[in-house]
Design a binder for these strands. Sequence first.
DNA 1: CGCAGACTGAAACAACTGTTTGAAACCCTT
DNA 2: AAGGGTTTCAAACAGTTGTTTCAGTCTGCG
Lengths: 227, 227
Amino acid sequence: MEPDTRSRILDAAERLLVQHGLDATTLRMITTEAQANLAAVNYHFGSKEALIEAVFRRRLTWLNEQRIAALDAFEAEAGGAPLKPRQIVEAFFGVAIRMAADKGGGQSFMRLLGRTYTEPSDFVRSFLAAEYAEVIARFKAAFFKALPDVPQEEFLWRFHFMMGALSYAISGADALRLLGPVDEPDPDALYARLMSFLIGGLRAPLPTLAPASQAKAAKKPRGKRAA
Amino acid sequence: MEPDTRSRILDAAERLLVQHGLDATTLRMITTEAQANLAAVNYHFGSKEALIEAVFRRRLTWLNEQRIAALDAFEAEAGGAPLKPRQIVEAFFGVAIRMAADKGGGQSFMRLLGRTYTEPSDFVRSFLAAEYAEVIARFKAAFFKALPDVPQEEFLWRFHFMMGALSYAISGADALRLLGPVDEPDPDALYARLMSFLIGGLRAPLPTLAPASQAKAAKKPRGKRAA
DNA sequence: CGCAGACTGAAACAACTGTTTGAAACCCTT
DNA sequence: AAGGGTTTCAAACAGTTGTTTCAGTCTGCG
């Protein structure tokens, strides 16, 4: 019931970072919530940035290991044959949304992660990139193998869109309430919903790009809209 | 070439808020960039929060007016008949992404907006809700009319996912670079890409929800995956 | 001109930030 | 019991935050 100070700080930090964001969360809030001394953060982690990094790393490495493990399992099962897109989506996004359903801390962390992915803070981005590098490479390869007819750039964008949908799915009720009252989401239902949406988007017919998008110069005006 | 102080502050604030986020952008950064005195912000706007609100309101009201105008045009054209989903998506998301393509400020603002939508800051959320209320109501009605076979809650989630994809589409290259090197996105191509993704997701087959999602209690384990 | 009202300017305000310090308390092995 | 390494604690540090103050400047109108 009373873990050591270091863990209490990590948990409190995670909770508060979700609630208030990176900058608005102060060390004094964290140490108060963790029932620790203010100096404890700098003692155990060295700095606020290092603490934030530790908060992310603790969950993120585990999450990405799970993703790769899930991909490994599917690939072993398929034995060299390309995977079905549904399986790859399941391995990447399914694992994430399952972690988001975990009440024991995973939930709040995933909300934080989704929000931070687009945050302009330099130091977060840099180690996010490092932490994601391997898993991205693996899944890119799997997708290209499964959908050889989809151009690489096209697919990257679709993957990006899928990340956006995932992020909002996780940040969930908070933002969704803008649209209208909704029940607290049932994890299984959310999983099913996001999955069918993602696969629908991924497998949508390729857009017919105007030739201008290749010549990249001649931009014919679309009308008088933006004054 | 030299608008009045108030406008210079608004422009500078918008630019810096996109770059650094809400909390990390200080009044001193803003007034320096705007070549104005520090006190000018509190003189013209009253407080930092009021300034931020003004930055949002300036573009957001216009954006939502455009959305409603586009919807009006489609509905007049259809004359009472339900719109095609593609048209409704176009009216809501197409207008947004076109504004995001506008170099003259619209671009940076849309990035800011997409990021803020999930931000936990209370005061932003409260006036975002007010600003969105009307447009949300209109589009909800149009969608329900166009897709009567889709349950309302199901649709709200899909709309939410679409907002996520839009947000990431706009925040664009910054986050996408995590996935790999990509060209600076051509607005027309991005528009076409997002559209086909969104419609693919929107029209995806309805997920088969386990009966547990209604009984909401009995949660049968999905296998040994999540330990 | 004169003078009110709108605006700008430099300086100071209290409150809060992350970090550092050095002494006290604790724990464990010798 | 003594000692050394680890951890906690209260206090203070310098720097930055949003906001306020008040003297100054500008502008337009009688």
